[in-house]
Design a protein around this nucleic acid. Structure first.
Lengths: 201, 201
DNA sequence: ATTTAACGAAACGTACCGTTTTGATAGGAG
DNA sequence: CTCCTATCAAAACGGTACGTTTCGTTAAAT
């Protein structure tokens, strides 16, 4: 149980401009701590220690925990598919399962979980999260509204609602740590959303 | 800015058994603080001060913040409808809109938000939350699977998936503070889930 | 009458918050 | 080349909350 836990390159000011190494060390430390200790063990103080950075340096560039987490999340390589084929249902199912896998297999899920939690305390984080989900919602709506030869969305149906349904399903699975359910469930959810779960009349 | 902010009945031990007044004062203080200051301002220390209770008393009966919050949430009068008529779609829409209204108009939404946030740090809270959602899921599945004269769920379709879709939609609206959207959206979501959003083939 | 358990109050050591101060560093403007 | 300026790490600040321990009290339980 050392005090810095791995990495610790001594750095210092490089003059009257931001040191990119410091910024990167802070982001890396934040990510590592989140992975190793989870949201409960995450603090700016620990990030500073591990990155060998001063706390003021962190607060100088990231006004809050949420800002740092959002930055780290956005810089993660996003391995999520947004396919557009002639089969809307399988496109949406593929999006959903790839999102769930992306959250499950890498650190992205842990980060996003923390952001959602933080957004319940920090109004600025909440706004950022609202904007983010709206943004992603548009992308999903892009899948949904793309021109297809096969059957598409009913013309009067707002694609945003469908996007929200898919997204919120993924959110809940993330937040209650049920990302490792069988893939069939996600497929069934998408099937319900697009083709309905009721008996045909 | 007084130190106790309203209520503060002096209490003491009533012998070798739990004092129900103390328990109630603690729950009331917790609720008030959550309403007035939100999740960010909520702490066991504040609850103790406001309830004129000792911190050990709180920890004696509620092992964590999450336990206290869950207790308070469960004791809220639950004004949510679980209707069963011959029209499954309107039943589910009524459930969903009444849940959203319940969260929006009273303190229940604030409490539940805090619980979800807390569950991202506290494993015990997470388990409790998993159990809770499973429990509620069964109730919703009860609506869905109830015998009806009208058309019901496709026989091969697991009701749990439908329940989860409806619940997760409500969760997201809660967590990003979008409970005051027009009711039509909830209706559209339910329509999609039950009858599909695609053009009929 | 004695044991037992809960209670409020105070204090403990630890951790983190967000901010301030200090002194070293080196780019940028004139 | 010289100052100005912004960044940096480090240390310390007062404040808050954590979860626990210690103490003196109250009164039910036995």
């Amino acid at each position: 149980m050392s005090s810095d836990e791995e990495e610790a390159p001594r750095r210092h000011s490089i003059g009257a401009k931001r040191n990119p190494d410091t910024a990167e060390a802070i982001r890396a430390a934040a990510l590592d701590i989140l992975i190793e200790e989870g949201h409960a063990g995450f603090s700016i103080e620990k990030v500073a220690r591990r990155a060998r950075a001063g706390k003021p340096t962190i607060y100088r560039w990231w006004p809050s925990k949420a800002a740092l987490l959002l930055d780290v999340y956005h810089r993660q390589k996003r391995d999520v598919e947004y396919p557009v084929t002639d089969d809307l249902e399988s496109d949406l199912a593929l999006f959903l399962t790839s999102l769930l896998r992306y959250w499950r297999d890498g650190p992205a899920g842990d980060i996003f979980r923390s952001i959602v939690a933080e957004a319940q305390s920090d109004p600025a984080a909440r706004e950022a999260l609202q904007d983010y989900i709206a943004e992603r919602g548009k992308q999903v709506a892009g899948i949904i509204s793309a021109p297809r030869n096969g059957p598409g969305l009913a013309p009067d149906f707002p694609p945003r609602i469908i996007a929200e349904l898919v997204q919120s399903y993924a959110w809940m699975k993330l937040l209650i740590h049920s990302l490792d359910e069988p893939q069939e469930n996600a497929g069934l959810a998408v099937r319900a959303i697009l083709r309905g779960a009721m008996t045909v009349k």
